[in-house]
Design a protein around this nucleic acid. Structure first.
Lengths: 331, 331
DNA sequence: AACGGCTGGGTAATCCATTACCCGCCCGCT
DNA sequence: AGCGGGCGGGTAATGGATTACCCAGCCGTT
């Protein structure tokens, strides 16, 4: 692998000139630039990233640590982050924490060690700590979930309100015993969706009971079990608020196994507008979250903070949108 | 941010000893190890990755360049790669090439610049070149699609055979005018699926006509249009082989819009066993690909090659599995 | 003509962890 | 006692790009 000095030798200039010519940071004789370019080309010169990053004390890379690569909500965020970051020459590396605090921590360490310019993180739980990042002064933005007790830029969806509206919608449709299947306690979005659900029941003077609430991991399997349990009760729910699309898969499966068609007997509203939501019968009523936009906003905030880490922290709250389809209509 | 010399000063030893104590590469007095550890701890020392990588001439990172982060097939591969890589202390960075040769190239450059230990790539098309990687001697494995004209380790699914079997299954079910919606020309999996489809028609002495074949990008929108066109023909197909799950969404939508229920009137088999395949009515017959396994196999091959780049290249072909459900039955 | 200012480009310091090389000490053997 | 071998640990070279600093030359001004 060619180094900068080989390029310099071939072009008959100093390494400093090569660097300046290739990075365009300073004025260099156009003739020399050409000679340097040609030499670099011929040698297949690729600057040594570690050397550059060592010198610059920072890599033009942002790390995006998400809790589940297989969740379309997060991959849509990733796409948003990428689109913005690439525009300004940053690379994005995607790290999958698997809702696992230990893996998350490990990735934070890696990000720190590699001296990335910034980190965007969806905190896996209440124990998440980005203290290490802030201590070192690494730019940081939280997405989807705020960071417990810390101040940082954060991009959220007003998920509590969305859950409230979704639940109110179910009530309006005449459902009476509405249940909720949400994510693990301590995961902020899961807590918020539950809280919004309770808000709605309360404001409509419906009794809220833990018998109609289940919490499991944000996956199909857990939601499947939860739905089974709820449906097998003496007094089963006549509607369910489901906290994400993977869970919706589990819930719809359970309904199928019980021979229950969504809508008429059991109303369903699920978070996240999956591409298949319109394909099931009846089509699934969903709370669509602006995932891509979360990504773009977060990336822009991060870039701003990379530029100036003293700027005041902000909280951006985006609205979710209820998309009514057949699964929440008795008709 | 603390450096190794600060740790050394604090522990009262040389930097060499700090490095040896923390990396455990050489025997160090246990007392000193303890002192060093404590000093590092107290200073919150994080080794400087770029410096380390510069010295070692390689980062303990593998890059995984996939063509679509939002495609569950690829995210499942990612998970497989991660699980294996993490076991041996490698980090995985995920890069999204978007089926875009230019982005792909750019990520290859980044991987090269950052001196990653290895690259796993799903080549976006016929123009993909990993020459740069092989020239520098970076370990490399291709997944899902072989690399045109180059020899490298590659992990594939026998997708042509799978397409043939899926088509044969449709024929066995009594469908007569079977169509095919596949990915862009030049994308190997798309070509292979089409070839397998034709193999089956031929071996059963059915005429194959381009009127029943459409090629579009591997996305819902393209497949939707393609299905519309096919269905609006004078002699529409009575069955469709669809080349991935995103496309299946588009196709099923089109059927809905035509008021056609899959199965009875138009049989459907789609590649990729999406979580929602059992939820649609009738449930979708699919060709399940062992995506996770592709990831684990590829990662193991890559690690072997990182260890010894002179080993002969191998081709691993995994079998796909047809899962018969309602959408391919006339009954 | 002399001098100040500006510009282009070279020299060498710098970033920090790893490791080749070397030294001193201790142990055991003859 | 003397010597060889082995081990722990220090010194300094190393990796490669960037950039502070400096110098030479050219222009314009007085």
């Amino acid at each position: 692998m060619a180094t900068i000095s080989e390029v310099a030798a071939k072009a008959g200039v100093s390494t400093a000139t090569v660097s300046r010519a290739l990075n365009g940071k300073s004025t260099v004789d156009p003739d020399l630039v050409l000679r340097v370019r040609r030499a670099a080309e011929e040698l297949g010169y690729q600057p040594n990233g570690p050397a550059r990053n060592l010198r610059r004390q920072e890599a033009a890379v942002v790390a995006l640590i998400i809790s589940d690569v297989e969740n379309p909500f997060f991959t849509a965020i990733a796409r948003g982050v990428e689109d913005v970051a690439h525009e300004v020459g940053y690379s994005v590396v995607l790290c999958n924490s698997d809702e696992n605090a230990e893996k998350e921590n490990r990735y934070i360490d890696v990000a720190l060690q590699e001296r990335v310019a910034g980190v965007i993180l969806s905190p896996s739980g209440p124990t998440t700590s980005v203290e290490k990042l802030t201590k070192r002064g690494t730019a940081f933005v939280a997405v989807d979930r705020p960071l417990p007790g810390q101040s940082s830029d954060v991009v959220l969806v007003d998920t509590r309100l969305a859950a409230r509206e979704a639940t109110a919608h179910l009530i309006d449709q005449g459902y009476q015993r509405i249940g909720c299947i949400t994510g693990p306690a301590g995961v902020r979005t899961a807590d918020d969706r539950l809280a919004g659900y309770r808000d709605a029941l309360k404001s409509r003077r419906l009794r809220s009971t833990t018998k109609l609430v289940r919490r499991t991991e944000y996956k199909a399997a857990g939601a499947h079990r939860a739905a089974q349990e709820l449906l097998d009760q003496a007094e089963p729910p006549d509607a369910l608020l489901v906290a994400n699309s993977a869970m919706a898969v589990g819930v719809l499966q359970a309904l199928q196994e019980h021979g229950i068609r969504p809508g008429k007997q059991v109303g369903i509203v699920a978070f996240d507008d999956a591409p298949w939501a319109e394909l099931v019968d009846p089509p699934l009523t969903v709370v669509a979250q602006p995932a891509y936009e979360i990504g773009t906003v977060a990336a822009r905030l991060l870039l701003a903070r990379i530029g100036d880490n003293t700027r005041p922290t902000t909280t951006t709250t985006l609205a979710a949108r209820l998309i009514e389809r057949g699964s929440s209509h008795r008709g």
